[in-house]
Structure formats: C-alpha cells, structure tokens
Amino acid sequence: MLHALGITHVVSVGECALVPPSNVDPSAPASTSCTVGPHFIAGKGPGGHGSLWMEEREGRIKVLDIKGVCDDGIDTLEPQLEPICDWIEKARAEGGKVLVHCRVGVSRSATVTIAYVMKHLSLPLVDAYLIVRSRRLSVLIQPNMRLLYNLLGWEVKLARERAGDDPERLRQELARSLNWPYLAKEVHLLNEKYLPA
C-alpha cells in the first residue's frame, strides 16, 4: 500500500515500527527471512510481508523509528523535533515522500507534522496547526497539552534562529506567537464541537 502511494520514508512516532513480526527470525539474512525454510517460524504464515521492519530491512522504505514516546501527557518530543525535521527535510530533498504516523494519528504524528510545517514554511504555531488540520479534513488533530507546549517552545527556538543576533527581528518574530493560556483556550474552542454534549 505504501508503495502504491509513493511513500519512500516513514516516521513512526512511539510505535516501535522496527520490531520484527512474530513469524520471522530476525537473525536471518534479509534475502531469506521472507521465505519458507529454516528461518521461517512454523505455523505463522509468510515471513513479515508488508511489515515496516521487512520493508526497511530489504531497502524499500527508510524508517525513522522514534521510540519511547507515549501519548500520555508526560512524554515529550522536544529533544527529537529538530532531528526529526532534519530527517524529513533530507528525505524530501532526495525526492522522497514521507509518511508520519503514530497509533491514532491525532497527537504525536500531528505534533511532528506541525513542527515540520513550522520550520519548513517559517510559520507560527497556530498557522501551522491550521494547515495540518485542514489537510486532515474531518479528522480531528489534537496534540496533548505536553506536546502542544513542546510546539510552543519549538516556535520560540525557530524564531530565535530566524532572528539571529537582531533583537528587533526577534521581537517581531515573537509578536506573531500566542501566549500559552490563550493558545490552550483557542485550541479548546476549535475542538469543542467534537466533544460529546
């Protein structure tokens, strides 16, 4: 399916995408792990066909597997945002198409996508949030509050990078930002119609 969509790179956020399927011997050479033989685990079906682990192992898809990030309001993506965005940018520069995913596609993957849009298009958080949300059509995106706070910090970091040593430019960049209480309130208002009555 990913090949049919032209996907060449996958960012898997917190889902351990590169875990071998239960029916494959991970120590088998890549060329034999998909065949019935000594590396096949009996009774489990064909070896890992279609799994990201197999696709990556056989060189058909490149995978950035971000481990240890649960959507629990405690885990953070803050230290990973820059390397993830750099990886996506490199993939796109090579002509690749990138899929960003997590379990539900609402919080962690949305956070990564918003962070990338902020950096790539030099946009403030709210504008990037609205662009990503508009591309999801009727599917709600809602980074948890910890991840939203990470994005707020990312916005400040990007503003400082764009401003360099120019304090006036930094002031102008930060003037486009929203403060945390206002941002939290506005996100709540955007999503209120999706909450049960």
Score class of each variant (00 low, 15 high):
I41G: 01
G14I: 01
A28P: 07
A4D: 09
F40C: 15
D65M: 01
G48I: 03
G68K: 10
Q172C: 09
I131N: 04
R136N: 05
D86C: 14
E56G: 07
S138G: 12
K185D: 13
V139A: 12
I41F: 02
R136F: 06
L81V: 03
D25G: 08
T32S: 15
M118Q: 01
I74R: 11
V24R: 05
G14R: 03
I131W: 10
D72T: 09
V106I: 06
A30H: 13
S107H: 05
L52F: 00
L99P: 00
D165C: 11
G95W: 12
Q80D: 14
R162T: 02
H3P: 01
S134K: 15
N150V: 02
E155I: 09
G73H: 10
C16A: 13
P38G: 14
S33Q: 14
Y149W: 12
H49G: 14
C102W: 04
R135W: 12
Y116N: 01
A115P: 00
Y116V: 05
E56R: 14
I74C: 11
V36S: 15
E155D: 07
R60L: 08
L174V: 00
P21T: 02
I74W: 15
D72V: 10
V36Q: 12
L183N: 05
R146F: 08
W154T: 00
V24H: 04
L123F: 05
A30D: 04
M54V: 04
A30Q: 08
N150A: 06
L148H: 04
L183A: 04
V100K: 00
T111D: 04
L152R: 13
S31F: 11
D165R: 06
K44S: 10
R103A: 08
H101I: 02
A184H: 11
